[in-house]
Design a protein around this nucleic acid. Structure first.
Length: 785
DNA sequence: GTCCCCCTTTTCACT
DNA sequence: AAAGGGGGAC
């Protein structure tokens, strides 16, 4: 038997050897889907399909990379197009830009660029936002784009009641994007979909250029994506899609689960293959997943089964609060590594919201466990990186107004909001870009001469930098940094008492440029670099060949697997999320999300919730998720921290379990930050205890440095921290009632805590009386919380 | 025009 | 908790 077909089950072989005609692969979690897809590509090539006629579309670069690596292994050196939908479209659009009114150096706005542009459009459309918010309008327009609704269609849509706010803003926003030679994420898909629809000859050409199309995660495609693959599969309907309706979790992004549920209707001659055997999880885990997902009404039934060993019971666990949850789990991981010889890479901690990563991160640091957090605020979102990128964007695409507004006064050069507003309105009035307006600054009435001079100076600077547009990236970035005196600017403004991480980030960015230069010696271009940075996804940051605990959202975890998985915050309002639980479809999607989380686990799984959780600065009682009652509780291990109690009495038939009683008097944790603590009058406080403070000079300096956005030293070194090196205990861990140790006064109990941020102070009662400390800048050791 | 402080708002997941 | 906006001081 050959390497391509060896070791495949009958169903898998069926799928792999299907070449022509539509194919639907319904693949349950852990059913070897990627294996089937990659082997199929290799098989197709071996059967004579030219690799250049194959395109494999995925949702993340990571998935594409993995696919590429595996195909390369089976069929070395074959140039199959693999990548994300967005990248596929970006490249097509690059080529056919003029057909939609763009030029090939168009820019891709990221979400914050788009937000800025949206605000400007709302302003220009002269819409009052009293009954709606820019976010709402943006969401409405985004949804419209995902459903292939154009501005004209939306305008025509509601003739009776007159156009909605969003319908009025949409054409303005779109026009401004065109003027800026830019697209937003949704446009990448929309433009290409419309291109295929409106230009039959182009559609035909591309259809035969990409005769074989494979789509991964088909359950997550939206109408625009559907239209694109459909348009490319009319003359050559060799479309194969892979997916699992039970793992559809992107409805909020316009994904239409009907695309996969109705695939057989769209392509009557389809061959359907079901992959239901699971090679990943233990029966215990699979049963939990299966029983949960059976509660969804709108689904295709699927029998999941596995021949794996029984394994351990799934654990359900209640913690008192988020800190204990984080500490408990991290301790357990550390323990398992020490005792059972597991590796950090064997573990994943998953949650619904990025906000939950904070406590985990603290605990990880304290335990000195290596971890990787895959979350939103990544490198390219950092202010200093966005600044430099904006310069590059503007150089690549002089029409990029958002970039211009970002850099025109960064570093500050005397061009304030007023002047920028003049430029903007002049640009809007004459239908030109803001850079053009800046060049004609003399024609703008009412602008102070001084401002005009500053603007001219900026234009000169820009023109000087623009010479470097075709230089290497390293050269370009270094020029920008030097000629704008960017690092001096950083040192002046971003002096957060913390460190010089901003400058370090700039260095790292230069390194990224150097690497790009090396990786693209010939085809390297500013354009390509900017496209790549615009289209990197959070999940792309995941590294699977590193030995670290993975911490990420349930969404980001799709497609991955880990021997041991912890899903935290399985609470009502969190999972299901309060914004999603009110509609049936939303609620079912949340259930699928938990299903995805559960099925990431190979050997062991714990789902946990807390009795109280601190969110957005305040602690509130939490209720366990209604999904708990949909699990096979009888066979699961149920643990409550502190004392074992059999929760979920068998007679509780309610859909929603009751909330647990709040902790009793001894536990004042939940009063933290409460009115009582905050209302203590400052004047009645004893003066600061200088013995705990840094020397006054130093303190003043630190306080002075602690500017608005800067991250002050918001933590205290504890003895344990000092031993382990880097990390600190968050100031918020110092609450009323907790015991601390101080070098001079000995042990004391925190009487009250007032103030926020760096001004947070604590009054502590020691044997020698009460003393008051400014928490952010003194060293206390937390001994008992 | 710029900087800084204070107040208000925010509500999720991601390309 | 964190970011953005408004208003006041220089």
């Amino acid at each position: 038997m050959d390497v391509i077909l060896h070791g495949l089950t009958d169903a898998q072989t069926d799928a792999v050897t299907h070449i022509d005609g539509p194919l639907l692969i319904l693949a349950g979690p852990g059913s070897g889907k990627t294996r089937v897809v990659t082997h199929r590509i290799a098989y197709m090539i071996r059967q004579g399909v030219p690799p250049s006629q194959i395109a494999a579309l995925t949702f993340t670069n990571k998935a594409a990379d993995e696919m590429r690596a595996r195909v390369e292994h089976l069929a070395p050196g074959k140039a199959v197009w693999m990548g994300t939908f967005h990248r596929f479209c970006a490249q097509l659009l690059r080529r056919y830009a003029s057909m939609v009114g763009l030029t090939e150096n168009y820019s891709i706005y990221d979400s914050s660029d788009a937000k800025q542009a949206m605000k400007r459009a709302i302003e220009a459309a002269d819409i009052s936002t009293s009954h709606t918010s820019p976010e709402q309008i943006a969401t409405t327009i985004s949804n419209a784009k995902n459903r292939l609704v154009t501005a004209e269609m939306m305008m025509a849509g509601n003739k009776r009641s007159g156009p909605t706010m969003a319908a009025k803003v949409y054409p303005v926003y779109q026009q401004q994007l065109l003027t800026a030679n830019a697209v937003d994420f949704d446009d990448l898909l929309l433009h290409v979909a419309l291109l295929l629809k409106e230009h039959p000859e182009l559609r035909q050409e591309l259809d035969s250029r990409f005769r074989y199309i494979l789509v991964d995660e088909y359950q997550d495609t939206n109408l625009a994506q559907y239209a694109i693959v459909r348009g490319l599969s009319i003359d050559h309907p060799n479309l194969s899609v892979t997916g699992d309706p039970d793992q559809s979790i992107y409805g909020w992004r316009g994904a239409d689960i009907n695309n996969i549920l109705d695939f057989e209707k769209d392509y009557p001659s389809v061959k359907t293959v079901r992959l239901e055997q699971n090679y990943r999880s233990t029966p215990n885990i699979l049963r939990a997943a299966d029983q949960l997902i059976r509660h969804n009404r709108r689904r295709k039934n699927k029998e999941l089964y596995t021949h794996n060993d029984e394994g351990d019971a799934v654990t359900l666990r209640i913690y008192d609060n988020g800190y204990e949850e984080a500490d408990g789990i991290v301790d357990e991981i550390a323990n398992a590594i020490a005792v059972e010889g597991l590796r950090p890479r064997d573990f994943a901690i998953l949650y619904r919201m990025n906000a939950l990563s904070r406590s985990i991160e603290h605990s990880m640091r304290r335990r000195n466990l290596p971890y990787q957090i895959i979350n939103g605020l990544e490198f390219y979102q950092r202010k200093e990186i966005k600044d430099l990128l904006a310069y590059m964007h503007l150089i690549n695409n002089p029409k990029h107004d958002v970039a211009l507004q970002r850099v025109i006064n960064t570093p500050t050069r005397g061009i304030g909001t007023k002047t920028i507003a003049y430029l903007r309105s002049h640009a809007d009035r004459h239908g030109i870009t803001m850079l053009e307006a800046a060049r004609r600054v003399d024609q703008i009435d009412g602008l102070a001469k001084r401002s005009a001079t500053a603007v001219k100076r900026f234009v000169d600077l820009y023109d000087h930098l623009a010479i470097k547009a075709t230089a290497t990236l390293e050269d370009l970035i270094r020029s920008i940094v030097e000629e704008t005196k960017y690092e001096e600017h950083l040192l002046k403004t971003v002096v957060d008492g913390q460190d010089s991480s901003a400058v370090a980030n700039v260095d790292e960015f230069i390194t990224a440029g150097v690497e790009f230069d090396r990786y693209h010696p010939d085809d390297g271009s500013l354009e390509l670099f900017l496209e790549q940075t615009a289209l990197v996804a959070d999940t792309d940051a995941f590294e699977d060949n590193t030995d670290r605990v993975t911490v990420m959202t349930l969404h980001a975890a799709k497609g991955l697997e880990f021997p041991r998985v912890f899903v935290i915050g399985v609470e009502d309002g969190l999972l299901p999320h309060s914004r999603s639980k009110d509609t049936d479809s939303g609620f079912e999607e949340e259930r699928r999300l938990l299903f995805v989380g559960i099925t990431r686990a190979k050997e062991r799984l714990q789902l946990s919730c807390c009795k109280s959780r601190t969110m957005r600065g305040e602690s509130r009682p939490a209720i366990s998720s209604p999904f708990f009652n949909e699990l096979p509780l009888d066979e699961m291990r149920r643990v409550e921290s502190e004392f074992e109690r059999n929760w979920f009495d068998d007679d509780s038939q309610d859909d929603y379990p009751e909330s647990w009683d709040l902790p009793d008097e001894d536990e004042e944790d939940d009063n933290f930050g409460s009115e009582a603590a905050a209302s203590v009058k400052e004047t009645e406080q004893p003066p600061f205890d200088e013995s705990c403070q840094l020397p006054e000079e130093e303190l003043k300096e630190l306080v002075a440095k602690t500017k608005k956005k800067a991250k002050p030293v918001m933590g205290l070194k504890t003895a344990a921290d000092l031993m382990s090196g880097a990390s600190t205990t968050p100031v918020t861990a110092y609450r009323e009632g907790n015991w601390v140790r101080h070098g001079e006064h000995g042990e004391g109990r925190i009487v009250s805590v007032t103030g926020r941020g760096p001004k947070r102070t604590a009054t502590i009662r020691f044997d020698d009386g009460e003393h008051r400390f400014r928490l952010a800048f003194c060293e206390l050791e937390l001994i008992d919380s």
